[in-house]
């Protein structure tokens, strides 16, 4: 493997990581912003897009912030913590939907929001970890095959 291939491989990995970090910031921001629906309990139907309870709003805001920090500080572990936490919260919401009141408040629309940002952050965090564990210049089998 020549030095040019090593440099190209390292640049590819760095590009991927930077893209994943930006995505984590966007997903974390989305989670944080969606917690605002907790204020819309009495909103008219045309703008009452999601029913977020107080517990769910705290989870969306806190773990959204963790996701933003993970992306901004380039810490993949924080992205995974945020994604895992939100996904678990979505599963808790799903399991408690038949109950009234529910521990996190809200309804199935909040489950969809928690699941969206949780699965998104998990996907980005896992992809980032996979890229981080690949030595520069050996980003994939296809890249290795391309070497002279």
């Amino acid at each position: 493997m020549n030095s040019e291939a090593l440099v190209n491989g390292a640049a590819l990995v760095n590009d991927d990581r930077a893209r994943y970090d930006r995505a984590a910031i966007a997903l974390g921001a989305g989670s944080l912003v969606s917690s605002i629906f907790v204020l819309g309990a009495d909103a008219p139907t045309p703008i009452d897009f999601a029913h977020v309870g107080l517990g769910g709003a705290i989870v969306l805001a806190a773990l959204g912030l963790v996701g933003i920090l993970g992306g901004a500080l380039h810490r993949g572990s924080l992205i995974l913590v945020a994604g895992g936490g939100l996904t678990i919260a979505a599963l808790v919401q799903l399991a408690t939907l038949p109950l009234s009141p529910r521990p996190l408040g809200g309804d199935a629309s909040m489950m969809a929001l928690l699941g969206a940002f949780g699965i998104g952050l998990l996907a980005v965090g896992l992809a980032r970890r996979s890229a981080a564990s690949t030595p520069p210049g050996t980003t994939s089998i296809l890249d290795r095959k391309a070497d002279p």
């Binding site: 989305g30 939907l97 629309s109 969809a112 929001l113 699941g115 969206a116 940002f117 699965i119 996907a123």
Partner: peptide
């Protein structure tokens, strides 16, 4: 139905 429609909302929202 709940899981399908929740999945539609979640996955289309993040574009996955």
């Amino acid at each position: 139905i709940l899981l399908v429609e929740g999945g539609l909302g979640a996955f289309l929202l993040i574009g996955l």
